[in-house]
Design a protein around this nucleic acid. Structure first.
Length: 844
RNA sequence: GCCCGGGUGGCGGAACGGCAGACGCGGCGGUCUCAAAAACCGCUGGGGGAAACCCCAUGAGGGUUCGAUUCCCUCCCCGGGCACCA
């Protein structure tokens, strides 16, 4: 008899596995591959319950896949560049590199202590020059393909992080994703990756991802924001009101309302604004609006709570559909960075234009009427404009009939309507407009004004302009002697930025911005396939063998950010001929958060349950099994100490069972009794658990997978309680003990290994064994008990032999006492027999 | 406003259209013990009944079906994403 002691067995097997290279893999064309990937962590130093959950899920999937005969790649690495290292360095006076590498060591030790089955030979650390040089190489390839651009535009600036941010990194109501400060808009020259070139494909290929949660796909589709619009060209008039050659194009989703356009709007930031008004009587009023708009914070503006303000420019444009001249106003609710920054205003059909028209006394001609609108009878049939005002309290944006709309009058209007198509076609024929597609997705701003990142490999030459660093000069090494505590960045470091132009050899300045860390995490999963390669970014053959990743596991917070960027990188690398697949991650599992009393665990809140403490008490196996048992993986879970205690009890129970059975086997006692019902019940329970546990792991229902193992243990205890020692079926018990050990192996790798090798005396590792075979015939019982319903309610139970013919079942069911009670005095209209399931009697 | 999720015992959660609540936590009662811990056994949705059993119950209301937590429609509530997006 031995006692379950995780503290002695867990470290022992961890060392043994590592010594034996148990989790080291190479390509093997003869076996099916499986790439199980978890989002690599930022090395913050300590592991938290979110890590435990994320990486345990991956580990169970990986171990189960191995037992099912797959050649499994299960790597780990560190997303090691980023701001926290700089902030910590400023605080502690150490170097970001020192801080980062030390954290990687402690975190790796914690991961080893959890018993995760990583191939440690493939570790990737994004702050290693051996890694980031290939990030720079990819950047140069993007540049060659015209996907890199340095340009000036209004960008998001985080005052706290002192750097610019990509659109995706501004979350909620205009705050920085990392520090939650309110983001400011600044006009700056920055580096962009042209992700918008792939907008349509990024959207379309979501359909190629049936293994992704709907939620994530919906979020990406929302973010990409495709809308089918019409472009309409308005002709600008000069100050005297005469049409010029200049046209201003607007986007609209409602070309059917074009006849209701009674004014025209420009965003305050629109470049035309100052040209139109400079030196005119309208200049000061317009300047005021521009100044006011500049002061509005992005938060205020995003909430749409501001009262709309505007000013007339003194100019007009010609509405192409009816030749009408409408006034051009500047309005603060028109956004420069959506569409063209110019809008045709249709106050009767758009609530914002409606408010604006009311405020400034502009006309509101109705053009689309609801089917029950009283104006319908008054305006029906009139093609010409007869009414310029409505008494409505709001604009009407629904479907309806067109009135006073020229030749389109009486057509059906609305989104995706007859009138909409007709107007667009009419404009197209005359070269005044066209159907078009608009995306909300913006190009990815990747430059950061921070030190601890991957340097952008570019040189500014006064003669040649922007020059890429030649490939053979890579990597542009991040210098280690920058004094971060003094607030220095690369821009303060002449030794770094003073250089010569690769093209002309003249004096030039090296780019001092670094890349967004999300560029590093957009291709690390490819590097895992060929981590040590120092001659190329990776060997396409190796990537071709392992990719795409069969299963990706990580937090929902990357639903857009990392997952969108990685999809983009994959598509570009494919177009470069380095990959043959369209999507990097075939299946995605987004795990829920680990909370305490409903609140997110955080150090600042002081409500953190430290994994180390739990390991110290119950061992890593109990923690692993518990965090999977408490809830399905995609749901948030609330931490419970009692639940962990319960898992500890179960592991002890399972341990004792295997230990006791092994003891009895050694004693050689017990004789199998043929046809013993208790033994066949245990036999059935065993195979039911084998089937359910495997199926449930395959569909990531780890909680029910574990509960099926618990049922097996309960069944074995029942058997041993009910059957005297001398009458127990020894081979069956032994089979239960070994299969139980195998079923638990993915969840509790250390305990299973100890039971397998020490208690059950096996030679090879339990983690090199096959998943136990399920025998469907074992589930077939001689007799079955069927519930019998009368009018949908269970009234009795019927025990019959499994192969009883239907008419015998019907007869026996109708003869059951409680069935007779409920059918007495009524006519049996129908009897439904669902074989092996139930009997349903219909009376009336 | 648009788009996704989700509402089941005291709690976490189970249920290919087929006995609602598996498994676990917690609670109650018991065995063992001088006692406690551990372990083991039993009970544990609500109501009625001595019992056999009966009634109610998966956010609300309809529908399809012999049969609905599950499928369809309408609505309510909670969580998340997008949004002065033209």
């Amino acid at each position: 008899m031995t006692k379950y002691d995780p503290h002695s067995i867990e470290p022992k097997w961890q060392e043994s596995w590592e010594r034996d290279g148990l989790y080291h893999v190479t390509e093997d064309p003869d076996r099916p591959k499986k790439y199980i990937l978890e989002m690599f962590p930022y090395p913050s130093g300590d592991i938290h319950m979110g890590h435990v959950r994320n990486y345990t899920i991956g580990d169970v999937i990986a171990r189960h896949a191995v037992m099912n005969g797959a050649n499994v790649l299960h790597p780990i690495g560190w997303d090691a560049f980023g701001l926290p290292a700089e902030n910590a360095a400023i605080k502690s006076g150490s170097h970001p590199a020192t801080w980062t590498y030390a954290n990687i060591e402690t975190q790796a030790a914690s991961f080893r202590r959890m018993g995760f089955s990583y191939d440690w030979d493939r570790v990737v650390r994004t702050c290693d020059p051996e890694y980031y040089r290939w990030g720079q190489w990819i950047f140069l390839k993007f540049w060659e393909r015209g996907l890199v651009e340095r340009r000036s535009s209004p960008v998001n600036w985080c005052p706290s992080c002192k750097t610019v941010l990509a659109n995706e990194q501004v979350v909620g109501e205009g705050v920085c994703w990392r520090c939650k400060s309110v983001v400011e808009k600044r006009e700056l020259e920055q580096w962009f990756l042209k992700i918008t070139e792939y907008s349509q494909e990024l959207l379309d290929d979501l359909d190629k991802l049936p293994g992704w949660p709907e939620r994530v796909k919906a979020m990406q589709a929302n973010w990409i924001g495709r809308s089918e619009v019409a472009e309409v060209d308005f002709t600008l008039c000069d100050a005297a009101g005469e049409p010029t050659d200049e046209r201003i194009t607007v986007f609209t989703t409602r070309p059917d309302t074009l006849f209701g356009c009674s004014f025209f709007l420009l965003a305050p930031e629109h470049p035309l604004v100052s040209l139109l008004v400079s030196g005119t009587e309208y200049e000061s009023a317009v300047a005021e609006i521009v100044a006011l708009a500049a002061k509005e914070t992005s938060v205020e503006r995003a909430r749409g709570e501001l009262e709309k303000r505007g000013a007339f420019t003194g100019r007009h444009v010609v509405n192409p559909v009816n030749g009408e001249k409408v006034p051009v106003w500047v309005a603060d609710y028109v956004l420069m960075d959506y569409g063209t920054g110019a809008v045709m205003a249709v106050p009767s059909g758009d609530e914002r234009d409606f408010e604006f028209a009311r405020k400034y006394g502009l006309p509101i001609p109705p053009v689309v009427l609801a089917d029950d609108d009283p104006l319908l009878s008054k305006l029906a049939g009139s093609r010409e404009r007869v009414l310029d005002e409505v008494e409505w309290p709001h604009a009407f944006s629904g479907d309806g009939f067109l009135v006073q709309s020229g030749e389109f009058t009486e057509m059906r209007g609305g989104k995706d309507s007859e009138a909409m198509r007709a107007v667009t076609a009419w404009l197209d024929e005359r070269g005044l407009g066209r159907a078009s597609i608009n995306f909300r997705l913006r190009d990815w701003l990747i430059s950061r004004q921070r030190y601890w990142g991957n340097p952008i490999p570019a040189v500014h030459c006064p003669e040649c302009g922007l020059v890429p660093v030649p490939e053979e000069q890579l990597p542009v090494v991040l210098p280690m002697d920058v004094d971060i505590t003094a607030g220095e960045t690369l821009a303060d470091h002449p030794e770094f930025y003073e250089t010569t132009c690769p093209k002309c050899g003249g004096a030039a300045r090296r780019e001092t911005d670094t890349m967004d860390t999300f560029t590093c995490s957009s291709w690390y999963y490819l590097r895992y396939c060929d981590a040590g390669n120092d001659a190329a970014v990776f060997d396409p053959a190796k990537v071709g063998y392992w990719m795409p990743a069969d299963q990706y596991i990580g937090g929902i917070e990357h639903a857009i950010l990392h997952l969108l960027y990685s999809r983009f990188f994959t598509k570009v690398l494919r177009d470069m001929g380095l990959a043959t697949f369209d999507e990097p991650f075939t299946n995605l599992l987004t795990q829920g958060m680990v909370k305490l009393d409903g609140a997110t665990m955080s150090k600042s809140r002081g409500n953190v349950v430290a994994p180390e403490d739990m390991i110290a008490r119950y061992g890593a196996d109990a923690l692993r099994a518990y965090i999977l048992f408490i809830a399905p993986p995609d749901k948030d879970l609330d931490w419970s100490y009692g639940g962990l205690e319960g898992m500890w009890r179960f592991l002890n129970r399972a341990w004792r069972l295997v230990d006791d059975i092994a003891g009895e086997a050694a004693d050689g006692c017990g004789v199998a009794a043929a046809g013993d019902p208790a033994a066949s019940a245990l036999h059935r329970a065993l195979h039911a658990s084998i089937a359910k546990c495997g199926d449930d792991i395959a569909r990531f229902q780890f909680n029910t997978a574990l509960s099926s193992v618990m049922e097996l243990v309960n069944a074995a205890y029942d058997y041993r309680r009910d059957v005297a020692v001398g009458s127990r079926d020894l081979p069956l018990q032994h089979k239960v003990a070994t299969d139980l050990t195998l079923l638990l192996a993915p969840f509790t790798p250390h305990m299973s290994e100890e039971l397998w090798r020490e208690t059950l005396g096996q030679r090879d590792s339990v983690h090199r064994q096959s998943w136990p075979l399920f025998d469907p015939t074992a589930l077939v019982a001689d007799e079955i008990t069927l519930p019998v319903q009368v009018n949908g309610k269970v009234r009795d139970r019927l025990t019959v032999s499994a192969d009883a013919p239907e008419k015998d079942i019907v007869a026996a069911a109708l003869a059951l006492p409680n069935v007779m009670t409920h059918t007495a005095g009524k006519t049996v209209r129908k009897v439904v027999v669902v074989p092996g399931r139930l009997v349903s009697v219909v009376v009336g």
